[in-house]
Design a protein around this nucleic acid. Structure first.
Length: 230
DNA sequence: GCGACAG
DNA sequence: ATCTTGTCGC
């Protein structure tokens, strides 16, 4: 376990956070294809909250991409760094996520986070922000379409449709299991959208959500409970 | 002004 | 995200 240090210059208001997003958004790299599915390491990150106690717990779980088995886990505990404001989720989650990632001995490889990257009002969601700060390949997988439009993808596993902001494809609704609600994939940093969807499909052979987020979700909840108990 | 709104 | 029991099903 490690204690989260919120950066001293972390925004303290909505206006400051918006300014940070505008300052960092053009550092996102969108021209790379990214790592192919089934090779190297893939790391899931997630965060759980206890707002009453002002506590946050983050987890990073590294999987072998070929076998989807866990090779390393790390957690971090700290104070909530920012309120939840739609469009500013990154400021709430990133200090905790960076602390957990920093505890890993493995290089994380591809990072999979909850939420969005390009599918964001200013094209700079959590996955993009985390990518810019770490320069790692990062993708975002969300359970809800946020404010974006999409056509229902086909019922078969692997079917996908565009997530649209006006005319721009900012992500994809991807069916990871037949007849089950799709997940919403978008690019964060140094990964193409097609490759991001291929990665997510590979990471979700049995359940709707990728194994990375399932493991990370379970671990950060466990870490939060232990922090409250102890 | 009011509702919608990733986690 | 979180509040929350049992219950149906593989």
């Amino acid at each position: 376990m490690t204690i989260i240090e919120k950066p001293a210059d972390w925004p303290r208001s909505e206006a400051e956070a918006l300014a940070v997003q505008n300052a960092l958004r053009d550092r996102v790299v969108l021209g790379e294809v990214g790592p192919p599915p089934g090779t190297g390491l893939v790391t899931g990150v997630d965060v759980a909250y206890d707002d009453d106690r002002d506590l946050v717990a983050a987890a990073a779980v590294v999987l072998d991409a070929a076998t989807l088995t866990v090779v390393e886990e790390a957690t971090a505990i700290g104070r909530v760094a920012f309120p939840y404001i739609p469009g500013l989720l990154a400021f709430r989650e990133i200090p905790a996520v960076l602390a957990a990632l920093g505890r890993l001995e493995s290089g994380p490889g591809l990072v999979v986070c909850d939420g969005y990257g390009q599918a964001h009002p200013r094209r700079f969601g959590l996955a993009s922000h985390l990518g810019v700060l770490t320069d790692l390949p990062v993708i975002g997988v969300a359970k809800n379409p946020f404010t974006f439009r999409y056509e229902q993808p086909g019922q078969e596993r692997g079917a996908a449709s565009s997530l649209l902001a006006e005319d721009e494809e900012v992500g994809r609704a991807l069916r990871t299991q037949p007849g089950v609600k799709p997940v919403f994939v978008s690019v964060g940093h140094r990964v193409g959208l097609g490759q991001a969807c291929a990665q997510v499909l590979h990471l979700a052979p049995r359940f709707r959500l990728p194994e990375t987020t399932r493991h990370a979700d379970a671990l950060c909840r466990r870490a939060l409970k232990e922090a409250v108990a102890g």
